[in-house]
Nucleic acid binder design. Sequence first.
DNA 1: TTGTAAGCGTTATCAC
DNA 2: GTGATAACGCTTACAA
Lengths: 324, 324
Amino acid sequence: MEAVGRLAGVSQVTVSRALNNPSKVSAKTLERIKNAIELTGYVPNMVAGALASKRSHLIVALIPSITNFAYSEFIKHFIQVMRGYGYHVLTAETGLSQEEEESILATMLSRRPDGIMMTGINHSAKCKRMILGSGIPVVEIWDITASPIDTCVGFSHAKSGEETAKFAYEKGYRHALAISAGDERALRRKDAFCDTFNKLTQNQVDEICLPGQASLELGRSSLAQAIENGFKSGVVMCSSDLLAHGVIIEAQTRHLKIPQDIAVIGFGNQNFAAFTAPALTTVKVDRAYLGSQAAKVLMTRIDQKPLENKCIDIGFEIVARDSA
Amino acid sequence: MEAVGRLAGVSQVTVSRALNNPSKVSAKTLERIKNAIELTGYVPNMVAGALASKRSHLIVALIPSITNFAYSEFIKHFIQVMRGYGYHVLTAETGLSQEEEESILATMLSRRPDGIMMTGINHSAKCKRMILGSGIPVVEIWDITASPIDTCVGFSHAKSGEETAKFAYEKGYRHALAISAGDERALRRKDAFCDTFNKLTQNQVDEICLPGQASLELGRSSLAQAIENGFKSGVVMCSSDLLAHGVIIEAQTRHLKIPQDIAVIGFGNQNFAAFTAPALTTVKVDRAYLGSQAAKVLMTRIDQKPLENKCIDIGFEIVARDSA
DNA sequence: TTGTAAGCGTTATCAC
DNA sequence: GTGATAACGCTTACAA
């Protein structure tokens, strides 16, 4: 900056102003500084800038898994919108474990982010203490609660499970199998589905809880296992589209007709959901909208502007296709 | 740090040393400092640390797409290994465009990363100039070249296409269709496949080049289109497993037998590849290994240690399953 | 083993 | 509109 200033015939401070507050610098000097920057190949140092201004222009984002399409698509949009605001997003994987989240957050906090994005609303007490202690704005996503740490943008997983059960009931299904990944939110959807379906039909729902992440493989093996255990026909509620696709493939391998013998409902409305054979009935959550809303909410907190609503429910929608 | 020092009865510098060079501090004071840190809830400031030491402990990683499983799985491992080294990874999406890469790199450089990871070996001249000018170590991944910007870890895409063609020929296929996404590396695989297959069989390979990213949908529509244009039977080489899965689904919808009527070969060996029906023959690239190797190479450059090999070929492997 | 002093490259505050 | 000066919270010599 010093060198740029020398070349432009101004002081270092004026260069700083030209970069951050161009309106406070005369047009002539602005031009000369611009040229000097071009000539010297000057690259601003955000590290020094962050230290001096106490604004890192950095957001820390914590998601359970980068390879999981649901989260990666959300974070993609979140990053995009944040980039528009002049922010970089440092993403980290927590793997659904509170301890991991805690330990990662601790090191991330030393980067002095201007904002934090966390997935879900269940965090350890120590985690909350660290955040509250830092005074950094937070947005919790992918779920909603009346008492967020700071703000939240998401939807009700219980309601989603409930609506799925009602949908299945209205479609005429009276027997059901629920296949769910082991994470807390998926389980909440499954439980709500089972409760509601049970109330409506008086029939107990068969349940399969998977360890770890959902996959095509687990979808296939789960249906196989259920059939072995006596499941004959009905609707299969899956905690993700990937599991649902696995169920479809396994059913077809066994020459079962979909949706006549076995109907399938997924969750997530992933890109492929409309193109399985038959096309998958699923629950759609607008992840792009979620990303941009989360970014907006976080930014208004960072800018200390008034926020109408600390919590935003972006809802969900059941997309009826051919599999159920 | 000052406050921690006061509480522990030492100077601020000693606290710094206790944190970065504990061996140079006596056990007693170390203990007192540890307690003081606990009591004050002190959180180190890496921004200040980075400015003073000129080490940001930050790596910038540029990938074409976060939602693409191939890249997200790689980056997941890269981040994990880097975390073990005490580094954070700032990931950004370039979307296969050199201009995007350039503009993103420019802003990222102002974070003063200690290392840079880029996808592919084709970058704009300005991009290379910026990197070379900054003097920051770079590792280019997912491809190989004899003349990397700095270092590279990957495999030969041309060779992969070639081997795929040889495999198909040896399996007895004499007619082929190649479906490829529009990105440069996928096209290189496709071209090599077509050339080699052509030489072996004297038969021209049908080709479909897709705009944009691969998807189940495009796999299905591509096969449909090829059949309409007269493709009757043979092997279908796809630039990704997702496309291949789409081809399988479309073929089954049309009651074509796999691999008898239509054989399918994918690329990537994604998690689901072994669990499609029939299981997908594909090209496996060890993305976890790629991630850890890239991290290792970059770290030895950052630590200015000698490097045996600037370029590492991690190879690939054709995994024969039931689809071809 | 510990402390002192001088930066690191910016921004913020004030004066001109 | 522009410039001097003092932070920002650390690390790195160097001295004790």
